[in-house]
Simulated assay, not measured.
Amino acid sequence: MSTKANCYLIGGTRVLTQCATRLLDAGVTIEGVLSRDPAVVAWADAQGVPVHDPSGDLMALLSERPFDYLFSMVNFRILPGAVLDLPKIAAINFHDGPLPRYSGSHVPAWALYEGAPRHAATWHLMTEAVDA
């Protein structure tokens, strides 16, 4: 008997809503979204996905039930190691540039400023070291 994967999402923008839609389409259960982004909140409400305060007690919230994945997309809160250890499978971050070349914030702007001929996004396992 197989069980569906489940996850929490933290962050904002259309990156989160587009990825969340694909997760739902793939049969993944989204247990909750941690966001204050009005577009994300509206998307979650329309999908019947619970919305939580991203600045609240993440340990308390995310410890309520087991889950497989934590996805962080356009999230500016640094998540402590104890939170990253909660998912059964992985805590995964979306970074809007190729790592390690473009770490930090405003990555697409820096790539444009430097005249980069190509650009990419990176999905990576999260560790306590940011963008590592």
Rank of each mutant, 00 (worst) to 15 (best):
N6A: 03
N6K: 08
Y8P: 03
L9H: 00
L9V: 00
L9F: 12
I10C: 02
G11Y: 13
G11C: 14
G11S: 12
G12F: 11
G12E: 06
G12Y: 09
G12C: 11
T13P: 04
T13A: 15
R14W: 08
R14F: 15
R14D: 11
V15C: 14
L16T: 10
L16V: 13
L16Q: 12
T17R: 02
T17S: 07
Q18W: 11
Q18D: 11
Q18V: 12
C19V: 13
A20N: 02
A20W: 02
A20L: 02
T21K: 08
T21F: 05
T21W: 03
T21L: 07
R22L: 15
R22F: 10
L23M: 15
L23N: 06
L24G: 09
L24Q: 15
L24R: 15
L24D: 08
D25F: 00
D25C: 02
D25S: 08
A26P: 07
A26N: 13
A26D: 14
G27E: 06
G27S: 07
G27W: 09
G27M: 10
V28T: 13
T29N: 13
T29C: 11
I30P: 01
I30S: 06
E31D: 10
G32T: 08
G32N: 07
V33H: 02
V33I: 15
V33A: 07
L34M: 14
S35R: 12
S35A: 13
R36V: 15
D37V: 04
D37F: 05
P38M: 10
A39V: 07
V40C: 15
V41L: 07
A42V: 09
A42Y: 05
A42R: 10
W43E: 03
W43Y: 14
W43I: 02
W43Q: 04
W43M: 05
D45S: 10
D45R: 11
A46N: 06
A46F: 00
A46R: 07
Q47N: 11
Q47L: 11
V49N: 09
P50D: 06
V51F: 03
H52S: 08
H52V: 01
H52Q: 08
D53M: 07
S55D: 11
S55L: 11
S55N: 10
G56L: 01
G56W: 00
G56V: 00
G56F: 00
G56M: 00
D57P: 04
L58S: 09
M59T: 07
A60K: 03
L62C: 06
L62P: 05
S63L: 03
E64Q: 14
E64A: 15
R65F: 06
R65V: 12
R65L: 07
P66G: 12
P66K: 14
P66Q: 14
F67G: 01
D68K: 06
Y69K: 01
Y69V: 05
Y69S: 02
Y69C: 02
L70F: 08
L70Q: 04
L70I: 14
S72V: 06
S72D: 01
M73E: 01
V74N: 13
N75G: 06
F76W: 06
F76L: 14
F76Q: 12
